[in-house]
Design a protein around this nucleic acid. Structure first.
Lengths: 219, 219
DNA sequence: ACTCCTTTGTTGTAAAAACAACCGACTTGT
DNA sequence: ACAAGTCGGTTGTTTTTACAACAAAGGAGT
């Protein structure tokens, strides 16, 4: 676990907490490290969990398959990001999504109740971690709202422009890369891939944008 | 403010905190009560805020109008519910939505940083409020995920069935009421009202469900 | 009771998306 | 080098949705 402290130090959860304090808290919080191979399920829809997790290696997809097999990518989890914090609550019910390793991955599990209960022993930085946790889930909340913002657009074109312009804004440049393949982007926006591909090319032909693979330029 | 303590006591935020403790915390947290008339804006898209709010009277709509005037109801806030907790974070940027009073309403404003910073003075229940706050935002997070679940369905019919069946499950009965008018439901699901109305009637004619106003029965 | 306004349902048309099938370019593994 | 698989783009058809316009029912206020 120690080799991941450098990564943990740069996560939202441990932002502002020193190496030695993190090390101490890993014990205090009874953290556990588990590894997964590409394609493995970290969590399955319907499961109940008591942990929040931090990804320290690899890449995870949070996704949902409906009755008819349509796959919806709810989120992508990259190194240093968290998952599960929304599901550990009294009567929270069960997980709404699958979490799958898109690459070989390593995940650290924390008992949330231990995090939220300020321990009587020394953990000086415990309350800072609580604040970090709050800000993190708060941010995830905003991301969901933004995704809804994209999805709420009525046409595929409007969905694409909503997503792409926001991504450009986020990366602070009209030239930017997206973290999706075409199929994943279509899943993220909940539209048909071929129709979306078609629409992208139309917009390119109309001079609205340029792209190659996952690199885009808004004009 | 005191007349609303009974309401505050039953909110998620103050769950498990006694009247007298709430009263003390209202001072400690420097809470402020503001009233609004039907149609008033509590917050506007683009604003930056330092407060979380609890609705103690009336009803609020969290909504988003796009470029072309399509209105999307992101959420309905009822008495005892909270708003704003997702937007008070370092570098959180500005509000993504408007918050509007659907009825004459009263709202209590709390400074979040005061909540998250455990005060040196006595507030015994402060840490319980922190936990409550966490669970609350966690739950809001899940609701957003559920909404995305409905919206991700490709057809209007599938969106309706997804929403209605969940609502039936939530109210634990095949006979249930929804908190929306048709237009609001259409906005919530991001579809055209008339097309949705049409689809509802088709489903009724096919014997899938029955409805009158906002009362529904799934068959 | 009357008017105004909101809500809901209905219909037809035009536009858009889903769907299916296919191709070519690239990767990956053997 | 070859085969199998993935990825992105293209096209044509079918289905669905949005849109517009209108009618009927119900409520609120005068």
């Amino acid at each position: 676990m120690k080799k991941y402290i450098e990564i943990l130090k740069r996560t939202q959860l441990f932002s502002g907490v020193s190496d030695t304090e993190i090390s101490a808290m890993l014990n205090c919080l009874q953290a556990k490290l588990l590894t997964f191979q590409k394609g493995d399920y970290i969590f399955r829809e319907g499961e109940r969990i008591d942990n929040i997790t931090v990804l320290v290696k690899g890449k995870l997809l949070v996704q949902h398959d409906d009755f008819w097999g349509n796959r919806n990518i709810v989120n992508v989890i990259r190194i240093g990001e968290m998952f599960g914090e929304a599901y550990v609550a009294p009567e929270s019910g069960s997980l709404l999504n699958d979490v799958i390793a898109e690459e070989d991955s390593a995940v650290i599990f924390f008992d949330v109740r231990r995090i939220l209960t300020v321990c009587s022993t020394a953990c000086r930085f415990h309350s800072m971690v609580i604040q970090n946790l709050f800000f993190a889930i708060s941010e995830k909340n905003r991301k969901l709202v933004q995704k809804i913002g994209h999805m709420s657009k009525r046409s595929t074109r409007a969905k694409l422009l909503s997503y792409l312009s926001e991504e450009a804004k986020r990366q602070n440049s009209s030239h930017f890369t997206i973290p999706f393949t075409r199929q994943q982007l279509a899943d993220f926006l909940c539209v048909d891939r071929s129709a979306m591909s078609n629409e992208l090319c139309k917009m390119r032909d109309e001079g609205l944008l340029q792209f190659a693979k996952n690199q885009f330029i808004l004009l």
